[in-house]
């Protein structure tokens, strides 16, 4: 069992995964470090990767047009054990928000295309991933409904 395989068990995206399934994922993972204030995802860009936060925090920021002025608003701050960018796995749409490191952050970066190829090849993995993403999005919608 590798360190990265053990780390992956801490993310909801991999709930229900066997060790054999996780061993197929680790080949797609890269660990990258982001300095505070560095942009990880730009709003309206194409979804290339998704991210698992190993350490640090990131701000999810949307740009709003308020009376003709563009304002940035932090909609949520995410920390270790959480993920972002996985909506691109579902809809392949442009990024709906900017994500910026709010502290020195260590992230596990996974290429979305390679991950989806694995999900299509191994449908047992694909089913679990899509169910886990649906549950995570459900949690985030419930949170948004409660905060405003």
């Amino acid at each position: 069992m590798t360190d990265i395989q053990e780390l992956l068990k801490r993310y909801e995206l991999f709930i229900g995964f066997t060790d054999d399934m996780l061993s197929k994922i680790i080949h797609l993972c890269q660990v990258r470090v982001y300095e505070p204030d560095s942009i990880i995802i730009e709003q309206q860009s194409s979804p290339i990767n998704f991210y698992l936060i190993k350490d640090g925090t990131v701000d999810v920021i949307t740009k709003l047009n308020v009376d003709g002025r563009i304002r940035e608003m932090v909609i949520v701050t995410l920390g270790a054990g959480q993920s972002f960018g996985e909506m691109g796995l579902v809809d392949s749409g442009l990024r709906s928000a900017t994500v910026k490191a709010s502290a020195l952050s260590e992230l596990v970066v996974v290429n979305s295309r390679e991950f989806l190829d694995l999900c299509e090849k191994d449908t047992d993995i694909g089913y679990r991933v899509m169910r886990n993403i649906a549950a995570d999005l459900s949690f985030k919608i419930r949170y948004q409904n409660l905060i405003y």
Partner: peptide, 17 residues
């Protein structure tokens, strides 16, 4: 996994594990 809302500050909260 926590959905956190601050009752005396509108729009303040977060998600934490």
């Amino acid at each position: 996994k926590l959905s956190i809302v601050v009752s005396d500050k509108r729009g303040v909260g977060g998600i934490q594990n």
